[in-house]
Design a protein around this nucleic acid. Structure first.
Lengths: 198, 198, 198, 198
DNA sequence: CATGAATGAGTATTCATTCAT
DNA sequence: GATGAATGAATACTCATTCAT
């Protein structure tokens, strides 16, 4: 199966990339991890760039699929219930693929592309995810759970808080249980840092 | 002046880096931007790594200096006044050096260091900035302006929101006036997204 | 065959080295001589230093092997017969690889090694060869053919005389038949320059 | 004084050369040793090659002068007395400048010269020294102290024995007193290694 | 004359990519 | 389809040399 082989390669690529970083990951490293020779990589991907791109695309698709699945699952539930579910889904995905998630926001991928195609894809993923969050946000507003004022910034802010939280864990090598992260995020996002009187 | 020359080089390096990205910035590009030959770069910096490191260090120092200056200026003022000032200082700096700011969170810098020294420096900058934010946060708590519960996460969350906001502007090529960003950040951070009744 | 390829490269390297000298032999020169591209050299040797080292090692091994073979062959024969055989073996080898032989006594190789490992190997080769000569010398003493007094200097002196003889031939571009060299060496070493009366 | 400055530079050059080797001695190293700037070096020597050449020439001249002085001093004395004096003079000189002496036999110097001029000078020094030894040898023959048969090889052999003796001392880091070296050399050269009966 | 910052040609080394087997 | 040796363009870095001060 062609697709199976591609997936195997992408898995290996993600591992190596997470371990060695973008710049120091050589095609041979990936091949070695898969257990094949470099030539084989080129039978499945046009070139290095295409492989990386495919990896990012795959990750993006997986994340979106996960988001959609969660939204599907919780359909009809109230915003207060759906938001935590969605955030947990994202947190879990991003934590699993943290190495790549960092890469997603990195410029190399953008820059190293001769065309601006990569940038477009990245933008696309980001905006797709934002859209889902925003849609849910509309529900929140409709249910009186969110201030409508800053609505269009909520996705960005939420994603930013998630990322910095995860980054900090990596830097300090102190992983936090997902539930705790979730609690902090929800409290701060929904209630704000200022005490609510009464 | 040796220091002057170093600064000139670092300026050029920042420009080129922001334009071309870490991976595709060659020493010759930087030299060309300064208007000197490669050899000259090596008269001022041990090697490529040292130059990049010096650049990051300089940026870090500048940011911390700016933060400290602002804190100094607003000393004694109430938290509600000081926080916006501090955030504005950070926003302005980061916006000015956005290209590099992205770099700061990129792994290449971490990975390419054999010793892991870079990681340490990055950690250090990050934690220094966080410390300042946290100290101010303590004031906020003391003045009853902040919930003490999630205090240790506030710096991380604030920095994360700032970064994602800036990232989005870059991706969408729609710069936001600083005052507006500030407004969104303060409202969301302090008041939260959920409407405050009454 | 990996070993075959390595040997081919080493052969080419020796030629180029002998023609151009250590300092002006570029990796590309060697590659060109072999008829491959530079990259290929690096498929077989870690780096320039490793290639040179391998070359010296190979030469050393070959010389020692030749010495041992000759000693083996002449085993049991009287000293007066064995010495000429041994010297001829050495002379032939050194004459064949004269370019490299000069290199062996050159400092670059020593100095360029960060670890001093090269020095050790050179010492080792030199002392291995000396040992064989010394052992044979012991036979000579036992058979009453050598004064025991300066025994420990004989190997050094013999090797020195051989080298200077060969050097002179190179400088003056007047090669001497091996048999003649052998004659001079044996007469001078054994009988001395002062006439033996009677 | 122009000549004085040149001499100072050459002294420094010899030191650095002996310490670091030909390949790793940079013009700046020499300048630093003298305590001047690189530019100054170029005020006294055309280029690096010229400086090195001047150094070798100076050494050669010094050695020849020393030999001539010794020959002058011992003029009229019997061969048996003059030879040790001459050898001692050479040994002392070579031991003093051992670093350079090694260099003298190295090919880099020859090869790195675009013209074959260096080779010529080296040949010249070598042959000048040999001539002196040979002349003395003629006396030895005339006085019945030397076999005439191998006369033209004596200088080469003597110089070779001296060099290998010195090399060995360097390699083994066990300096030998000059008198002892002299003894070994004279005995072996004059008497040979084979016992003289009766 | 001395200085030493600037120069830039020259080289070792890497690694994505190809293609004959 | 898999292989992996060969390729060679690309790049960091060095250091002899120059020349304005």
């Amino acid at each position: 199966m062609r697709e199976e082989a591609r997936a195997t390669i992408l898995d290996a690529a993600e591992q190596v990339l997470a371990e060695q970083g973008l710049a120091s990951t050589r095609m041979e490293d990936i091949a070695a991890r898969v257990g094949v020779s470099v030539g084989t990589l080129y039978n499945y991907f046009e070139d290095r760039q295409a492989l990386l791109q495919a990896l990012l695309d795959a990750q993006g698709q997986e994340l979106l699929a996960r988001i959609d699945a969660e939204l599907e699952r919780s359909q009809g539930a109230p915003y207060r219930t759906r938001l935590p579910g969605l955030l947990r889904a994202i947190l879990e995905h991003v934590q699993t693929h943290f190495g790549l998630f960092s890469l997603l926001q990195r410029e190399d991928v953008r820059r190293s592309a001769s065309t601006g195609e990569d940038l477009a894809r990245h933008q696309h993923l980001w905006s797709e995810a934002s859209q889902r969050l925003e849609q849910l946000g509309q529900e929140g507003i409709a249910q009186g759970e969110l201030r409508p004022e800053d609505a269009r910034h909520y996705p960005t802010l939420l994603l930013g808080m998630m990322q910095s939280t995860l980054s900090r864990q990596v830097l300090e090598r102190q992983p936090l249980p997902i539930e705790e992260q979730l609690g902090v995020l929800l409290r701060c996002f929904l209630e704000g840092a200022r005490p609510r009187s009464g």
